[in-house]
Design a protein around this nucleic acid. Structure first.
Lengths: 194, 194
DNA sequence: GACGTAACGCAACTGGGAGTTGCTTTGGAG
DNA sequence: CTCCAAAGCAACTCCCAGTTGCGTTACGTC
């Protein structure tokens, strides 16, 4: 039957409300009382499921921090990098993506587990694309000394900067630009292992 | 005589304690009571000088957000960019710099004036170095289509990414690397006006 | 060196959120 | 229909934001 019991409904409602509050008001202004009001779930119930505020926030973020960006492999490194950058931008500008990114760069990052999620997202995430770069290297499409991690960092960093600092509306053009810069650096031989 | 009266002493102590608390515990955990305890300045006095917490934080940040990175102009664009990157890293890793950067990327950035400081720092700041790039363009050291703002963004973005996301210890090597990437992009002609 | 005042100290208050406790009510599985 | 785990509820403590009225002290002025 796979019915969602009372318990699951409560959990889902609270997690959703937490993420909404985090997006709208930020971690510093987050209150359990408000989440209780919004969801109709009683304050005591929330504290029974989650020990305290950090625990709740961590749970909410963890649930939605699955990025799952597909790793392209068309045999054309420029096209692949562009797709990758586009996917990343798509996630970062989606409702969930923006929410997660906001939390990961807020005071919530003082929670060690949240900081860990941030590192994981930006270190282990790109690492999944290593094979794509390695394949390009094998094909001779990139100088042999290129370090996959460095190339991916060079790709993501400008996009990240644009979103976080400038708050600009990043789009396809931003992706194409980031790819040009990263590829130019790779082909100039300045993306070797550090 | 230029004596610092009672008032100035109080102000300085509170501002300093605020910045310390912001660095150590973050904006979300900042309390006036704790600042009052630390400084020995009475809570009421703090509220008399600063309307509320955001106002105090804004004041504390504003006072120390003067970056004042010298703009080099040696006639050698690579050397100049390296010096610029090194200065930026120096600031960003100094006690004050780290504190300011932390605040500008915390929940405090929800305060519109704080967000404005952040934009100003990373938009108007680099703009001061435009003349340096323009001079290099005039000398023919860079392709004529290079946009100063784009070049500076390409220089800062990777450093920023390294500090904020990875939390790595950036140093002279990071600076040199950022310069290589930015210059490679510029010389490949991919840093034109967007 | 006494004096007036502006700035600081202090105690006591309201209002609200974090987190807790003991008890009652209800949904849903068997 | 019955049972109990999970949710609701009221009432509490503690801490912090921000306020008020009044006493106290530093400091420029005369």
């Amino acid at each position: 039957m796979e019915r969602i019991g009372r318990g699951e409904k409560v959990r889902a409602a609270v997690i959703a409300a937490t993420l909404t509050e985090l997006t709208e008001k930020g971690y510093a202004a987050l209150t359990i009382d408000e989440i209780a009001r919004r969801t109709g779930v009683h304050k005591t119930t929330i504290y029974r499921r989650w020990r305290d505020v950090p625990t709740l926030v961590l749970d909410a973020v963890t649930v939605h921090a699955e990025v799952d960006i597909p790793i392209p492999d068309s045999g054309d490194i420029e096209r692949d990098l562009t797709r990758l950058a586009t996917s990343f931008i798509g996630w970062a500008t989606s409702t969930t993506g923006r929410a997660i990114l906001t939390v990961l760069l807020s005071d919530a990052a003082r929670i060690p587990e949240i900081a860990a999620i941030r590192r994981q997202l930006f270190e282990d995430g790109p690492r999944r694309a290593d094979t794509m770069i390695t394949a390009a290297l094998a094909r001779g499409d990139l100088p042999a000394d290129v370090d996959p991690a460095e190339l991916l960092k060079a790709l993501i960093a400008p996009i990240f900067f644009e979103i976080v600092i400038i708050g600009a509306t990043v789009d396809q053009k931003t992706a194409a630009h980031a790819v040009s810069v990263a590829l130019a650096a790779a082909r100039a031989g300045v993306l070797g292992r550090q």
